[in-house]
Design a protein around this nucleic acid. Sequence first.
DNA 1: CGCCGGTACCTAGTTTGGCTAAGTACCACT
DNA 2: AGTGGTACTTAGCCAAACTAGGTACCGGCG
Lengths: 103, 103
Amino acid sequence: MLKGTLEGVVLTALSTKPTHGYEIVGWLRERGFEDVAEGTVYALLVRIEQRGLVDVTRVPSDKGPSRKVYSVNDLGQEYINEFWATWDTLANRLEAINRGRSR
Amino acid sequence: MLKGTLEGVVLTALSTKPTHGYEIVGWLRERGFEDVAEGTVYALLVRIEQRGLVDVTRVPSDKGPSRKVYSVNDLGQEYINEFWATWDTLANRLEAINRGRSR
DNA sequence: CGCCGGTACCTAGTTTGGCTAAGTACCACT
DNA sequence: AGTGGTACTTAGCCAAACTAGGTACCGGCG
């Protein structure tokens, strides 16, 4: 059911604080997305990079291999705004249906 | 972004009133899902039937070919409950992230 | 020194569930 | 006979999740 929302979520995370994939995974876990696979996140990051929604810089780490730090650019910010707008209308529609259902 | 939610929505619709595919499409259109393709709905109906979430009866129509009327069974109702539960937690998580984002 | 665990990233292949774009067929009405 | 609304079906595509690995860097420990 998550489909499509993960991208918006990750971009939103990156917009408040540019960071790298491994940390994003941890950030997601803290927010209830426990069973999002690492591979999913990395694939997603590749995708948003290819679409030009984020800028990337390599940053060395003292605890392991160098990190790819992603930061949201203008196009990405635009995407984020649209994402939350569509999320909002979808949530409203669903809420209306949920209220009307028989329980 | 709709992915996965359509099923729950359609099943919920069917749980309040058993009906056929063509009417479901209209029902969806009235509730903001204007651009859900007919093919999508019929494919979805086949899916939920194969999973045993609905029972089907053929009902003749005086305006066209006979209708396949779907009604939600116990298993389907269970699915609906789970669907709204997961939707709820997802919506809460998203809302929390949305509140926290920089605008 | 070697290896283990944590950090960090990447890939191939599959499944799911949308989409388009057709086609079929029934019926009423003109 | 043809048109338009009703009603269902199918084949094939694509995005985005998933599984299930692999690679590599680093510090610390025996």
